[in-house]
Design a protein around this nucleic acid. Structure first.
Lengths: 170, 170
DNA sequence: TGACAAGGGTTATAACGTAACATAACATCA
DNA sequence: TGATGTTATGTTACGTTATAACCCTTGTCA
């Protein structure tokens, strides 16, 4: 098995993640202002924490992180913040692992479709326009009207695969 | 909006469900025997209950049903049975609603892909070979090796849509 | 017949999520 | 300015989903 294929820049690749965070936060502030909704300190901090993590975070993990910073929060607080962020399209929930991750493209409304690496636990949001098409096609055949999509594919990312190959052959 | 399109026979249509259950149970018994694994009374009853229900069942609902029948079970019992049935490909778990549903085609290993109706709460397992193809394609581009797929599409089934139309216009 | 594996019983608890009510912060307008 | 309504957050309690850990029973087989 070779890994010569050129790969797009994704969560699975080395990159300046601080840049991602800054830009995501700026975009979030912009969108909220535009829409006349309030990105309060808690909401903002939750979004930052989600973005800072290299893997999707659970609600209670976030709760713990907030507690460390002096936010005196109980579960409802965090779930409200997460609900707000989801509603504004700033984060996605990963139902299969009960965790949340930042949305890479919050400007345009879309469903979150993900590859989840079982090894490094990172989530890669994928663009699936063709997949979308065949789903709509299938829905049409059954007369089904689509509301929301949960598409979460687990497996092993390219990085982890090559790591494992190195270990096995080294 | 018209609803003239011919539709396949699915969970969303009227049909003799007893026949479904019988045939599913027979197939399960056959598969387990073939594989040398034991379809014990509890496992068998759980599978039947899942099939008897017109909508996916949660673990604790199943627990309640078993309790009514004198099975003196606690959560671990039911989760073990569900794990077994999942492992043998006899049921699927719907992660987005924490519920379980019978697999329509347990002989051939495959992933469960579902339409979930938000109105009648029924689940329709769909065949998605084209979707499969575009997923594999996308995975290939990212060097991602797929293990397991969670594809759960919520919305409104044809039956419920036409019911709602009737109500609105009647 | 005793070692072993598999299945299930039992207790306890972890992890995830929400209802309901109280309070604080903010806006706005007489 | 302060009465009022709205939105956001704090707080308590509890509901729901899932698993860890340990033990006992039963069947199998050398």
């Amino acid at each position: 098995m070779t890994s010569d294929a050129t790969q797009p820049t994704t969560a699975f690749c080395q990159h300046d993640h601080n840049h991602c965070i800054d830009s995501a936060m700026a975009q979030a502030r912009h969108l909220c202002q535009q829409r006349g909704v309030r990105l309060t300190p808690i909401r903002q901090r939750v979004l930052e924490l989600v973005w800072q993590s290299h893997q999707p975070l659970g609600a209670y993990t976030l709760l713990g992180l907030l507690a460390e910073e002096g936010f005196n929060s109980a579960p409802p607080t965090i779930y409200r913040a997460l609900e707000f962020l989801q509603h504004e399209g700033l984060i996605h929930k990963l139902a299969s692992i009960n965790a949340f991750t930042g949305c890479c493209n919050p400007g345009t409304p879309h469903e979150g479709h993900f590859f989840l690496c079982l090894s490094c636990h990172q989530a890669l949001e994928i663009d699936t326009s063709t997949l979308q098409h065949s789903l709509q096609n299938s829905a049409g055949k059954h007369g089904f009207s689509i509301a929301q999509q949960t598409i979460e594919i687990t497996g092993c990312c390219a990085q982890c695969q090559s790591k494992q190959n190195t270990e096995n052959h080294g």
